[in-house]
Simulated assay, not measured.
Amino acid sequence: MAHINNGSYTAINWNNIEDELDKATWEKLTQQFWLDTRIPISNDLKHWRGNMSDQERETMNLVFGGLTTLDTLQSQDGMAQLKLDAINQKEEAVLNNIQFMESVHAKSYSSIFETLNEKAEIEKIFDWADTDEFLQFKAHRINDIYQTGTALQKKIASVFLETFLFYSGFYTPLYFLGHNKMLNVAEIIKLIIRDESVHGTYIGYKFQIGFNQLSEEEQTELQTWMYNLLYELYENEEKYTHELYDEIGWTEQVLTFLRYNANKALMNLGQEPMFPDGADDVNPVVMNGLSTSTANHDFFSGVGNGYLLGEVEALDDDDYKKWL
Rank of each mutant, 00 (worst) to 15 (best):
residue 189 I to L: 10
residue 262 A to L: 06
residue 138 K to D: 11
residue 280 D to R: 01
residue 166 F to Y: 11
residue 181 K to I: 14
residue 260 Y to R: 02
residue 158 S to Y: 12
residue 123 E to D: 13
residue 125 I to G: 14
residue 279 A to S: 12
residue 28 K to C: 14
residue 109 Y to L: 07
residue 244 L to T: 01
residue 306 G to F: 05
residue 155 K to C: 07
residue 208 Q to P: 09
residue 304 G to E: 12
residue 301 S to D: 14
residue 109 Y to D: 12
residue 14 W to H: 06
residue 284 P to G: 04
residue 248 I to T: 00
residue 36 D to S: 13
residue 154 K to G: 12
residue 292 T to W: 06
residue 194 R to W: 00
residue 99 Q to K: 05
residue 144 D to I: 02
residue 250 W to T: 03
residue 85 D to V: 11
residue 159 V to R: 01
residue 258 L to K: 02
residue 128 W to I: 07
residue 99 Q to P: 00
residue 129 A to Y: 06
residue 279 A to N: 08
residue 211 F to Y: 11
residue 86 A to F: 15
residue 43 N to F: 11
residue 98 I to P: 03
residue 287 M to K: 08
residue 219 Q to Y: 06
residue 223 Q to T: 12
residue 146 Y to L: 04
residue 307 Y to I: 07
residue 125 I to N: 13
residue 299 F to I: 14
residue 31 Q to I: 00
residue 261 N to E: 06
residue 226 M to S: 08
residue 263 N to A: 08
residue 120 A to T: 15
residue 273 P to M: 00
residue 135 L to G: 02
residue 86 A to N: 10
residue 112 I to A: 13
residue 192 I to Y: 01
residue 187 E to R: 09
residue 193 I to K: 05
residue 314 A to T: 11
residue 7 G to D: 06
residue 247 E to G: 06
residue 189 I to A: 05
residue 36 D to P: 01
residue 310 G to K: 15
residue 74 Q to H: 12
residue 81 Q to N: 14
residue 73 L to K: 02
residue 174 L to N: 06
residue 279 A to P: 02
residue 300 F to P: 04
residue 76 Q to F: 15
residue 294 T to R: 05
residue 207 F to L: 09
residue 191 L to T: 12
residue 138 K to L: 11
residue 114 E to C: 08
residue 250 W to S: 03
residue 247 E to V: 03
residue 244 L to Y: 03
residue 296 N to H: 15
residue 63 V to G: 00
residue 139 A to V: 14
residue 147 Q to C: 12
residue 175 Y to G: 00
residue 298 D to V: 09
residue 241 T to W: 01
residue 177 L to Y: 11
residue 274 M to Q: 10
residue 174 L to G: 00
residue 284 P to D: 09
residue 7 G to R: 07
residue 58 E to R: 05
residue 104 V to C: 03
residue 206 K to A: 09
residue 196 E to G: 07
residue 292 T to P: 03
residue 298 D to E: 06
residue 73 L to Y: 05
residue 250 W to D: 02
residue 189 I to W: 09
residue 239 K to M: 11
residue 6 N to H: 15
residue 72 T to I: 09
residue 281 D to Q: 10
residue 29 L to C: 04
residue 211 F to E: 08
residue 139 A to G: 14
residue 65 G to N: 06
